[in-house]
Amino acid sequence: MRHYQLHLEDADLISYKSKVLFVDATKAADVESFRIEKMASKMDFSFSSHAISIPAIMATCQQCFDRVPQVHLLTIRGYAWELEQGMTPAAQRNLMTATEYFRNESCASGM
């Protein structure tokens, strides 16, 4: 499933799954190439009409549907987002590394 942005309806979407992996780009400098982290449910009131956090989606799922899947977030370091620019070579390398890691390691780590 590819999304333009997260919506409250994603609480419904993930309620049918046992494991969910969110993937997003990040410009956080402390992410060298990519990062995988386990997410925890939290009603953090981050909602706006165009944005809501993953923890708030999970909390909504718990509150409305009485269940919540195991959720991980895969963030991949990006460097530039100008129109027509496409991915930079460094970002492409990070994406490939993350994809490779995810393919090889996800089953073993129980994600």
Binding site: H7, E9, D12, M43, F45, F47, A56, Q63, C64
Partner: peptide
């Protein structure tokens, strides 16, 4: 922080469930 739909989630989850279902149907 309360006066939005996430505040509603805590106050009336059944209503939010219906809103989510409505939006999903529309999509």
């Amino acid at each position: 922080q309360q006066r939005n739909v996430v505040g509603l989630v805590e106050a009336d989850p059944e209503l939010v469930k219906r809103v989510v279902a409505l939006r999903k149907w529309g999509q």
